[in-house]
Amino acid sequence: MSGVLHEFTTQVPEWRPRVKPIELANATPEQLEALQVTPSNTQVSDYVLVLANDVETLKVRSPLFNAIMYGRGGLSRAERELGAVGASIVNRCIYCAAVHASRHNQLTKDETVIAKIFADGENAEIEERQAAILNFAVRLSRAPSEADPEDMRRLRNAGLSDEEILDLILSASLFGWANRLMHTLGDPVARDDANGGSGR
């Protein structure tokens, strides 16, 4: 297919579904509630309209997503985004990687960490705390059994608390979920403008 992106980027692409999104005009009250459609908010992405095909899961997943990525305390938001990026690289979800790499850059006001990760993957030469976080997210994403006590020790040696490590486990695992939706149900395609998207 033309225009499908295969390389990592921080420019958020468009997402072209491989299955039919629901039509808003025919949406059930339950779907409208899950989509949070109101008279003042009628803009819903194709991705969310695709997920509305399974409204019971969508309804409970959205608040879970927000709690894991934005909940107070624990791991910093930028480091949760790093966990999301680690998973998205392993699963080659170009769309999710773009959204969460650009959020990481916005939060840290630094583009060099993501640039190194996109260039060298898990072997990127970055500061040890970030490297330990990336390493753990990558290994847990490849296969749950691949993350081992040594990876956990590395997180602790880098100064992460139990609460912070739990938040990292949650964000990396959550993107095992998000990547399997975004990457399998549609294609990332180049867009003309540089608007943001919702990689979740």
Binding site: P144, S145, D162, I169, A172, L174, G176, R180
Partner: peptide, 17 residues
């Protein structure tokens, strides 16, 4: 599938923790 990928990793991570 996506939920299971999350759940099985969360459990594995907690065992390591």
């Amino acid at each position: 599938n996506a939920f299971l990928a999350y759940q099985v990793r969360l459990i594995a991570g907690l065992k390591l923790l």
